[in-house]
Design a protein around this nucleic acid. Structure first.
Length: 901
RNA sequence: GGGCUCUUAGCUCAGUUGGUUUAGAGCACCGGCCUUACAAGCCGGGGGUCGUAGGUUCGAAUCCUACAGGGCCCACCA
């Protein structure tokens, strides 16, 4: 694309919409994001944490995906064969819940009305319709994923991998069926894993209920938060060290309402000082009681059904068998557990068996998905034995094979969890998910794990078989994500090349759900960790620090931000406001930061475009004509390349962005572009103009490289307008390297020039002298070097500080109405008769003097301290001495000037 | 109950292994500017006893201890 000298076609305000749409399309059409097996390059793989198909992406995803895409674009430009693999998760419980809700709302049907097969078809249809929203969002945000490789956890090949894993673990004995207390979600009527349970503080009551002793008028008092479960009591426990009650051991008590006779026993779980010292034991509905039951040989009696309603008749559980036991009172049968709680208390009060009721705050587990209180429930479920599987994954983090970033924050948490890992309940009583590949022989009860019914028939030798009804926990498929997406269990080229992946970027909330389990499965099935680095970023919150949620209505929709502010602005703002691993508080208006930055970039390009003779960045051809500003900006550029590259490599994405942001805005725009204006406007010195043009073009192009990972669209757009014909698109073009242009002398000299200009500006600003009022500058110094620099860079000072002439003086004549500034020992005077308010200038000098005096006093005190002189390193002392000298000199000169007025 | 983390300018946050930073940035605020790239901009300015109390040290926002408050994670307390 060639660039006309005229610039009327470059709009003053950057308009991102068309640009972003254009590049989104072009990059995809050009296959810029595609990854192919390429033995000549090192692979770098990032897999997206697959979002749930149910959800639309929120701003937290935007942060997550932005970080991934920054790494992706950076390493792609660094020359790696970059694969950023996209996809979505079928999210068993969540998706099923959404579809069930819609079904109820729109057709007043339940899943049972449809039946399993029809219902699952509906879920698929829903997925086809809504699943694309996420992919669309990712594209809008500029994520450079290889879209051809999009995966879904219920794809055919992926499903095969999930079943394969189940079968292998089952055959190894690491998956077993157990009859246990699980976390039951009565709303979804399914079991949950421990990780899907969220504990919340709940204001409840502690009920003290009287149980009659058999053959006696005495009673004991039992304390419980869940009186309704007494229907399933099969014992009452006391503490082993409770001497007062020891004589009751072996005695029989009668459970009210059901009149079941149970024994009193002692168990270590009981604390004699809590409540009444008696604990009712309901082994089928409480995990502790379950354990006590095991230890004391209590029977297990179910009193609730799978929906959390009271059973008409209790069920005695023995292994897989359930037999009717005592009937429950009519007024309770069929009632919801919370309704039953109220009723049973009313009834117990009536018959005088409530001793007292106390307020009691305790924590109650809630379902992560449906938010209803969890019911500990005795049922038959599938479990994965985790302890041995987890061992290599624990070791990997301990020895640094897998690194967590920021490490100090999550390391201990990870270790603690892995050392105390529990068996994983993976069966769910849902219909949407990977069905458990266990087939039972209806005659013998024998079971086998097979991919298909046909294989099972062959193995069992009969057609009279049935498949297990349950499906697997969603996480039992997502824990295979890094390799199942690449074709496992087939030995594909992709798998060999792209696995292990490099970096996993995710939120710390799913460290255990997902990250830890992926490491476990990686070792088990691939023999090595699935990634080397795990980057855990913070949570995005609203500007009051609250979590964003639907109910609060404080969420921010990334697409809306893209619409209003652009994808570039979305991304850059997130980087500007985030810091490593720390939560971010965001208001919608914050995205102006990114929008303004894009506009600044646009205008720097616009300015340059207006002042180019032709497009060339061959600045080295003009090195003989370099001025200090050129050497300085090239030197600063080198430093910036080093720090940006280093920060990105160390996962300090935000630091990297801030470094390039400030280099671009402060050094390049505010100083360099201002300093070269004189040359750009100069028609009689073509070499000088050309030098400024080529250096500016080169630096701008280098900035586009470094900004590209964060703001891909505008940088590519500008790059295309400036690039040479033989250069690649920015998305692919090689990442810049520092090339040894650091020039300490130029930096020192520029620092002086900047100090002079800033000093003059400050004096003028504080005097309220309008910029239109030009002034002359007088200076006095004894150092030739200083005067030399002032002479050499007079054009810089004149144009940026609005000075007409610069003249050396030796006396003090004509300084009555001059403002004074001291820089590096040189006294600068701005005589402005009529414009200077002498009183104001006195005040200004006073303030400056006061500030310096404080410094000088402090340093003098420090330097007169013998232990400081003796113990501090010599260089620290020397530095302070130099500092004191400089401050004292400046102070003296300022005082003189104050006297003069 | 255990662990982690945070508390620095009005707001949101940086501040790397204790000494070049007079404790910084962005936003907000105040003053001056439509200076031929950009008012989504430019140039200045004010504003902080670095949560509290001790301790270590020549020297602490930075290390240690206790306390207060916010957040998160883990934990079977009836």
């Amino acid at each position: 694309m060639s660039q006309e000298r005229t610039t009327s076609d470059i709009p003053k305000i950057y308009e991102p919409k068309a640009v972003e749409a254009h590049w989104n399309k072009t990059w995809q059409e050009n296959g810029s994001y595609d990854a192919t097996v390429n033995p000549n390059r090192k692979p770098y793989t990032i897999v997206i944490p697959p979002p749930n198909v149910t959800s639309v992406l929120h701003i937290g995803h935007a942060l997550n995906n932005t970080i991934q895409d920054i790494l992706t674009r950076f390493y792609r430009k660094k020359g790696y064969e970059m694969l950023y693999l996209p996809g979505t998760d079928h999210a068993g419980i969540a998706t099923q819940a959404v579809v069930e809700k819609n079904l109820k709302k729109e057709e007043n049907l339940t899943r049972y009305d449809l039946g399993r097969e029809k219902f699952v078809e509906r879920v698929w249809a829903w997925k086809e319709k809504n699943g694309n929203a996420i992919i669309h969002q990712l594209k809008e945000m500029g994520c450079s994923c290889d879209w051809k490789r999009e995966r879904f956890t219920r794809d055919e090949a992926y499903s095969h991998a999930v079943l394969e894993v189940f079968i292998r673990l089952y055959e190894k004995g690491d998956i077993y069926k157990g009859h246990r207390i699980v976390n039951w979600d009565p709303a979804a009527a399914t079991a949950l894993s421990d990780e899907e349970v969220i504990h919340k503080e709940v204001q409840g009551k502690l009920y003290h209920i009287r149980y009659k002793l058999k053959d006696s008028d005495d009673f004991i008092s039992v304390a419980t938060t869940r009186p309704e479960t007494l229907l399933g009591d099969t014992g009452v426990a006391i503490a082993p060290d409770d001497e007062e009650k020891a004589h009751l051991i072996g005695k029989t008590v009668i459970i009210p309402l059901v009149n079941r006779e149970v024994k009193i026993f002692s168990d270590e779980h009981v604390d004699k000082d809590f409540g009444s010292g008696f604990v009712k034991a309901t082994p089928a509905h409480d995990p502790n009681d379950f354990d006590m039951g095991k230890r004391n040989d209590l029977s297990q009696i179910l009193m609730l059904d799978k929906d959390g309603k009271i059973l008409p008749v209790c069920l005695l559980v023995k292994g897989d068998e359930e037999t009717p036991e005592l009937p429950n009172p009519d007024f309770l049968a069929g009632l919801d557990r919370f309704e039953a709680r109220k009723k049973i208390i009313v009834e117990l009060k009536k018959i005088g068996q409530i001793e007292k009721i106390e307020d009691y705050t305790h924590s109650v587990g809630h379902s992560e998905r449906t938010d209803v209180p969890i019911e500990p429930y005795l049922s038959s479920q599938w479990f994965v034995r985790m302890k041995d599987l987890a061992a290599p994954a624990l070791k990997a983090v301990v020895d640094g094979t897998v690194k967590l970033h920021p490490g100090d924050r999550w390391y201990k948490t990870y270790i603690h969890w892995m050392e105390n890992i529990h068996d994983w309940c993976i069966s769910r009583q849902l219909w949407w998910g990977h069905r458990i590949p266990i087939y039972y022989c209806n005659d013998t009860g024998r079971m086998v794990a097979k991919h298909t019914r046909e294989e099972a028939i062959e193995a069992l030798g009969t057609e009279n078989i049935r498949q297990d009804e349950d499906v697997m926990d969603t996480w039992f498929s997502s824990w295979l994500w890094p390799f199942a997406t690449l074709g496992w269990p087939e030995k594909t080229e992709d798998l060999a090349y792209f696995y292990p992946t490099q970096t996993l970027v995710t939120a710390p909330e799913i460290l255990f759900f997902w990250v830890a389990r992926m490491i476990i499965s990686g070792y088990e099935f691939m023999g090595e960790a699935p990634f080397k680095d795990v980057y855990l970023h913070g949570t995005v919150r609203d500007n009051q620090g609250r979590k964003m949620s639907k109910s609060l209505g404080n969420g921010i929709d990334p697409l809306n931000i893209v619409e209003i502010y652009s994808a570039d602005a979305l991304r850059s703002t997130l980087m500007m406001l985030s810091s490593e691993g720390q939560d971010i508080n965001l208001a919608e208006s914050d995205f102006e930061i990114g929008r303004n930055f894009s506009n600044k970039i646009w205008n720097s390009y616009r300015f340059l475009g207006m002042n180019l003779d032709d497009i060339s960045d061959d600045y080295q051809a003009y090195s003989d004509n370099f001025e200090v500003a050129d050497k300085w900006i090239l030197s600063r550029l080198d430093r910036t390349i080093q720090s940006v590259t280093g920060s990105l490599e160390a996962f300090h994405m935000s630091d990297a962005f801030k470094a390039i942001y400030h280099f671009f805005w402060d050094d390049f725009c505010d100083w360099y572009l201002e300093l070269i204006k004189a040359r750009l406007y100069d028609d009689v010195d073509p070499a000088g103009r050309k030098t400024a043009q080529t250096v500016a073009t080169y630096v701008l192009k280098q900035c586009m490289h470094m900004l590209h990972p964060v703001i891909p669209f505008i940088t590519e757009e500008i790059w295309q307008r400036l690039k040479n014909d033989d250069e690649d698109d920015l998305v692919k073009a090689a990442w810049p390297e520092a090339i040894g242009q650091i020039d300490q002398d130029a930096e020192t000299e520029m620092a002086f020039v900047q100090a002079v200009i800033t000093g003059i500006r400050t004096a003028r600003g504080e005097m309220n002298i309008p910029p239109a009022a030009r002034a002359n500058l007088l200076y006095r110094t004894t150092e030739n070097k200083i005067s030399g620099m002032l002479e050499a860079h007079s054009t810089y000072i004149q144009s940026l500080a609005r000075i007409d002439s610069i003249v050396a003086i030796t006396d003090q004549s004509d300084l009555q109405s001059a403002a004074a500034v001291v820089v590096n020992g040189a006294e600068l005077f701005i005589p402005l008769a009529g414009l200077i308010d002498v009183e104001l200038e006195k005040k200004r000098l006073d303030k400056e003097i006061g500030r310096l005096e404080k410094q000088v006093t402090g340093l003098e005190k420090k330097l007169s301290n013998d232990s400081f002189l003796a113990k501090a390193p010599a260089e620290v002392v020397a530095k302070d001495k130099q500092k004191l000298h400089d401050f004292a000199e400046k102070l003296g000169k300022l005082k003189q000037n104050l006297d003069r007025l």
